[in-house]
Every structure is written in structure tokens, then in C-alpha cells.
Amino acid sequence: MEENQVIDTVDTGIVIFDREYSATYWNGWMAAHTQISENEILGRSLFDFFPKLKNPRFLRSCKAVFAFGNLAFFPQDPYGYLFSMKPVEWFRSEFKFMQQSCTIGPIRGEGKEIERLFVSIRDMTEEAAYKKKLVALTLNDELTGSYNRRFLMNFLEDELYRCRRYNRPFSVIMMDIDHFKKINDTCGHPFGDEVLKLFASTVVRNMRKSNRFARYGGEEFVCVLPETDSEGGVGFAEKIRKLIEELPLSYKQSQVKITSSFGVITYTDDINDIATLMKKVDDALYKAKESGRNRVVVAN
């Protein structure tokens, strides 16, 4: 009797269902968070109330637990949630649905046969939001809000792997603001910072959603363009170059013109690692600088 009280009030959702996926138990937590009462759902299929639950992965997992008596896990990362319901703090949550970590396990009858399964559901919304924030903190550049070098290197690693595996193109642009040291020296660091921010926002505003833009160091930035060939990469670099050149900047009432230089590289299968890729694009950028700045050079 005491156990029942605990199961009904504990801050975990507990659902029990049979081989036909009909609910045979629905605890207080579930009722409270789904607005579906025990009376409504008992004896009815879970799929009547949660149609999305009827997906191959959930069904396979249940079959496996029936067959092997193991536990099947649906952790928040990567699955998000199993039972769609609003987050408790729906009015200020960044998630549309409560993030959950769920576990499915066997319930055996007297003859040791598995007759029913249970699912336990834990609310992970707050943890997921916290994790998201932490991840953002470790992967973003504080000043410009763009990704940082750590993120970039990981992303490039994945991208290179993906390209080799699925044989897809991708391009990388390395960009650098010309004579940035001089800007800092003559106009001061606060102005320099504004230039960096403006540069970053100009690129981000104009790039595709699948592109990734990161501050590589000082006044150097890198943009990764998945699914983009050399022509696309150069085109985008040219576009940014012109936009930067035309930025209406002024310091103490006098106009300040800034320019930038670009190195572009497109993946070819002789590039085996990120170090080689970065070396080549860096060389291209160096050539752009050397040959007069405010231009785009393609790596060979």
C-alpha cells in the first residue's frame, strides 16, 4: 500500500502496458503532466493518445524487452522525448516539448514470463537547457558571438569525415581584416572590437544556414561551407569582400574604410587531415595579403 503512494507521487512518470500496448497503469505524475487521467487511458492503446509513439524504434525496443528482458533506454540525448507533453515551465522554456529520459523494462508474471512492460519517464528539460547553455559557452567566442576555434576544429573534423564517406564537396574560407593592427592603434581597441563584431555579423547575415562561421584567432575568421564547390566558395568570399569594403564606418566624424583578404579551399581527396587543409587555406590567404590585400585567392 505504501509503495503505491510512493509510485503515485514520485516525480517520475510510470506507465505500464501489455503486449497490445494497452495501458494497465498510469501514475499520478503522468496524469498531472499530460492532462490525461488514469480513467481515460486505462485499457486503451497508448497510441490512441500518443500517435508518434508508434514508431519503428519504440516498437522494436518493446519487442526486444519482451524477448530478452533487458532494459531499453531512450535518454534525452539523443532522443529528446518519448511522450509528447508540455514542459512544466512552458511559458519560458526554449523547448516545445518536455525533454525526457525514459527507460523501458520488463514485468514478469508468476511463471517468470514477461507479460507487461513499464516505462519510467524523467523530466530532463532543465538539464537539457543547462547543457545547451554550457555547450554554447564552451563553443562560442564571447566578443563576436560566433563559434570559437574549438568548435571549428571539431566541426571540420566531422565535415572532412563526412565528405570522404559520402563523397560530398565542401569549401573553407579563411578571412582576415586588412591592417587591423593599424585600426586598433589609431582608433583604439573599443573601435577595433566594434569592427570585429560588424565583420562577424556581416558574414553571418549573408551565409547559408548550413554554413558555420568561427573566430579563428585575433582578426582571423573561418567560414565552413558544406555542400559547396569551389565556385560557390569563391562567389561567397567575393560577396563578403565587397560588403566589407562598403561598410559605412566612421571614427570621430571621418570615414574609415576597411578591407579584408580571403583564402578559399575546396576539399579534394588528396587532403587527408585538417592540418593539411588549414595549411593550404592559410597559404592562400597569405598570398592574398602578399599580392595587395582586399582580394580572394584560391588554394591550389
Binding site: 524504434r57 522494436r60 525496443s61 526486444a64 530478452f68 528482458g69 533487458n70 532494459l71 531499453a72 535518454p75
Partner: peptide, 19 residues
């Protein structure tokens, strides 16, 4: 891939150890 591997890995180990 991560989702699939987690599922199939869990199934395979659970099944073997469980049996």
C-alpha cells in the same frame, strides 16, 4: 547513426547478457 547504434547496441548486449 548515434540513435541507431545506441538502440542496436543496447539490444545486442542486453540480449546476449540477458540470455
Amino acid at each position: 547513426e548515434k540513435e541507431t547504434l545506441m538502440e542496436i547496441g543496447n539490444m545486442l548486449t542486453g540480449a546476449c547478457v540477458g540470455k
